[in-house]
Write a protein that binds this DNA or RNA. Structure first.
Length: 189
DNA sequence: CGACTTTGACCCGCGC
DNA sequence: GCGCGGGTCAAAGTCG
C-alpha cells in the first residue's frame, strides 16, 4: 500500500491475524482539511467517469461534500481537532476487521440511501479518542468501508506483539543465554 | 461483576 | 424557523 502515512500502522498485523484471501484493500483515501476540495473535485470527476454505476465506494455519493463536512462539525464539544481521517474500502466477508486495536461500539445508524447500517466505534484504550465508522458499500455489500478519525496515541496490542517478535532471539542468543524471555520488548520510537 | 453491545432519544448543522 | 439526516449519549441488556 502506497499512500500517505497510515495512522494505523498496525495493518502489518494482517499478516498474522487475518486470512488475506478474505479481503482485499481496494481503495484508500486520506480525508483532511487540505484535501477536502481536492477530494470533492475527484468525486465529481469520478462520478462523471462512472456515470451509471461506480466501483468506487465514495465517488458516487452525490452529497459527498456535505457528508465530508459533517464528519468534522458535529456537536461543538466533541469537535474533532485531529484533522486526520482515513477511509479504506475493503472487500471482506467480515463486518469488522481485526486491525489490532480494541474498539468499543457506541452507536449504530441506518443511513439514508443505504440499505446497510453504519456502525460507530471508539478506541477503548483510555485516553485515546480515535473513532472509526464501518459500513457496507451500498452498491456492493461485499465491500466494507472503514473510516478512521484521528491518530492513536498508543501502540496497538498487536503491533506491540509484532515488535516483540522482531526482538526474538536468534537460536545462538538463546543457547548462549544472551536473551531474557522475561525482559520487556524493545520499542523503536 | 465488569466490559461490551444494543437501541431509542437527543443534539446539532445544514438546506430549504 | 422547521425538518431532515448524521453523530453521540446513555440506560438497559448480554456475555464471559
Amino acid at each position: 500500500m502506497n499512500g500517505p502515512e497510515n495512522p494505523n500502522p498496525n495493518y502489518t498485523c494482517f499478516e498474522e491475524t487475518v486470512n488475506l484471501s478474505e479481503f482485499q484493500l481496494s481503495d484508500y483515501l486520506l480525508l483532511e482539511d487540505g484535501f477536502k476540495e481536492d477530494l470533492s473535485a475527484k468525486m465529481t470527476a469520478n462520478s462523471e467517469e462512472n456515470s451509471g454505476g461506480s466501483s468506487n465506494g465514495f465517488a458516487h455519493h452525490e452529497d459527498g461534500e456535505r457528508r465530508n463536512s459533517n464528519i468534522r462539525c458535529k456537536r461543538g464539544k466533541n469537535k474533532l481537532d485531529t484533522g486526520i481521517r482515513v477511509a479504506f474500502r475493503t472487500k471482506s466477508e467480515l463486518e469488522v476487521m481485526d486491525d489490532g486495536f480494541k474498539w468499543r461500539k457506541y452507536g449504530k445508524k441506518s443511513v439514508k440511501n443505504s440499505p446497510n447500517p453504519r456502525n460507530y466505534y471508539k478506541c477503548s484504550s483510555g485516553g485515546c479518542h480515535v473513532k472509526k465508522r464501518v459500513e457496507r458499500d451500498r452498491d456492493d455489500s461485499s465491500y466494507v468501508i472503514t473510516t478512521y478519525e484521528g491518530v492513536h496515541n498508543h501502540e496497538s496490542p498487536c503491533l506491540a506483539y509484532y515488535n516483540y517478535r522482531q526482538t526474538r532471539p536468534t537460536v545462538d542468543a538463546v543457547v548462549s543465554g544472551g536473551w531474557d524471555p522475561q525482559a520487556p520488548p524493545h520499542y523503536s520510537s
